[in-house]
Amino acid sequence: MNKIVEVLPDKDALIQRSLAIVLDKIQAAIAERGRCTIALAGGGTPKPLYEQLATHDLAWDNIHIFWGDERYVPADHPDSNEGMARHAWLDQVAFPPANLHPMPTANPDPAVSASQHESELQQFFQLQPGEFPRFDIILLGIGDDGHTASLFPHTEALQVRDRLVTVGNKDGQPRITFTAPLINHARTVLFVVAEASKRPALAQIFAPVADDNIYPARLIQPEGELWWLLDQAAGQDLRRS
């Protein structure tokens, strides 16, 4: 694993640095493999990144968009990660509809939806049983509680090692989420983190020893590159490396 930590002066600089890395990885993936696969994060922090991406003229036909997790609501719900990304970016450019791969949330049973999405990933990446896909880019954030994607502290999803997609749980509300092993197979994992409220969790995530079940972002140790981009408010206690 190649781990890079950068603390940027403010949130605007954080977004611009994130944009530069994402654009570079998109272009490199298309040049090397003919396509780029990206899994998006939800929450407020990446929204301006998506708005910036919408201003660039990229090879949309060669980019496939997925989501690392999704709240169990329809795409037009205000809490939908898909809906946020569509409004900020995907509906603003000429993305082929077939290149967007949202997590399904229509079935009454979230476990059925998780299984459906796992099947879609297996077909798209042409996986054999037991194999994991290698996303080119997985974007992540963290919560004040140290969660990432919908891998929340002390939840069953943290223990899932043999699935690509599972059901997360946030205060009794179901989510659909990539599993930690899937995320860890990515070529590039990019955490984009802002605000001082994240500092206590970051201290534990970066500590040499701490409990993964309490701070699930510690589980993310990818085979490829691991980028932590933080604004000064979030990252001022961390040494640059």
Rank of each mutant, 00 (worst) to 15 (best):
D162E: 10
I138E: 04
V165K: 02
Q123G: 15
A157F: 04
D162I: 05
N169P: 08
I176Y: 07
H154V: 08
Q123L: 13
R163Q: 14
R134W: 12
D145Y: 11
Q123E: 15
D136I: 10
P181G: 05
D136E: 09
R161P: 02
R163F: 02
L164T: 06
T155G: 15
P181V: 04
R175M: 10
A180Y: 00
H154M: 12
T166R: 01
R161W: 09
Q159S: 07
Q173A: 13
Q123F: 08
L158P: 00
I137F: 03
F135W: 05
V167I: 06
E156W: 00
A157L: 06
R161H: 13
R163G: 07
G172P: 06
Q123K: 10
P174K: 09
P153N: 12
D171N: 12
Q128D: 12
F178A: 02
G141A: 04
Q173K: 11
K170Y: 14
D145S: 13
Q159A: 09
G168Q: 03
F132K: 14
I176M: 08
L158N: 01
Q122K: 11
A180D: 03
E131V: 10
D144N: 13
V160N: 04
R161T: 14
P133H: 10
L140E: 03
A149C: 07
G130T: 06
N169K: 00
T166A: 09
E131H: 09
G146Q: 13
R163S: 11
G172W: 04
G141K: 00
L182C: 04
D162T: 06
H154R: 13
L139D: 01
G172M: 04
Q128R: 10
R134H: 15
V160A: 04
I142D: 03
D144T: 14
K170A: 14
Q122I: 07
T148R: 01
E131I: 09
R161M: 13
V160Q: 07
G130S: 08
F124A: 08
V165C: 00
L158R: 00
Q123D: 15
D144K: 10
V167S: 04
L158T: 02
A149F: 02
T179V: 05
D171R: 00
E131M: 10
V165Y: 01
L158S: 03
Q128H: 10
N169C: 09
P153E: 12
T148D: 01
V160P: 00
V160E: 04
A180M: 01
D136H: 11
H147D: 09
D171S: 09
T155Q: 15
P133W: 07
P174Q: 08
F132N: 14
P129M: 15
D162M: 06
E156H: 07
I137T: 06
F135E: 05
Q128V: 07
P174E: 06
T177Y: 02
V160C: 03
L140D: 01
Q159P: 00
L140F: 02
F152I: 04
V167A: 05
Q122P: 05
L151I: 00
